[in-house]
Design a protein around this nucleic acid. Structure first.
Lengths: 109, 109
DNA sequence: ATAGTTTATCGTAAATTTACGATAATAACT
DNA sequence: AGTTATTATCGTAAATTTACGATAAACTAT
């Protein structure tokens, strides 16, 4: 992804949006977030029960969402209760909202 | 990405969001869309002049955005004039807006 | 026809993502 | 101590992404 000496000067916001977008770029992660949004479930196990994927794979996707900051986990032995991370969720909402809305004159090129 | 016989039943919206998100998951593609949004430029060449990346790489990213439906190109020989695709842009805005907003009870898990 | 300009495509190498099963880790129970 | 239940991590293979230079394609202009 970065092979030459050339540096592209990205703005923080560009990196931020891309980072959130990357977390949302797999349908199963969208599904997981939807489940958390609807409070249909919270424990990892409930997700693995509802999504026909290996437990390790679900865990991997949860990790991706966690690293992007979109979810957080609370240990509740032996289980882990996940939920949406309010602060970053709001931040992501704001970024996407802004990104899509400040485009008044972009269409008629 | 799909190696077993198991099929995960994704909803169309989940696939749609993931698809748009994937298009937005690289900072240079965000940058390109920003340029188009601000009408700073429209021709491929203007982008390759502003972004220190190989022309072929820029073209590849434009292709990705085009395939996701976010931009469209109008041939204007020997150049190509790109702009945001109004319909799909609105669709994406709608999807993300919806996705981030219907989460009233998700935080207090 | 030839040359010039602009953009897309090809070939390819390196990096990353995605999925799986197997195993480890953690903490509660016998 | 040993068992059980739940989740994370490891190792790994296949697929995809990303970047580049080289080349082709398309269309103008000479």
């Amino acid at each position: 992804m970065q092979r030459t000496g050339k540096r592209i000067g990205y703005h923080d916001e560009e990196l931020e949006i891309a980072r959130f977008a990357k977390a949302l770029s797999h349908p199963v992660r969208i599904k997981i977030l939807r489940l958390l949004e609807n409070q249909t479930c919270c424990f990892t196990g409930e997700m693995t029960a509802m999504i026909p994927m290996a437990q390790s794979t679900i865990s991997q996707h949860l990790k991706a969402l966690h690293e992007a900051g979109l979810i957080q986990g609370e240990i509740n032995p032996p289980r882990v209760k996940y939920c949406v991370n309010r602060e970053n969720w709001e931040r992501a909402r704001e970024l996407f909202d802004q990104f899509f809305s400040d485009s008044p004159n972009a269409f008629s090129c």
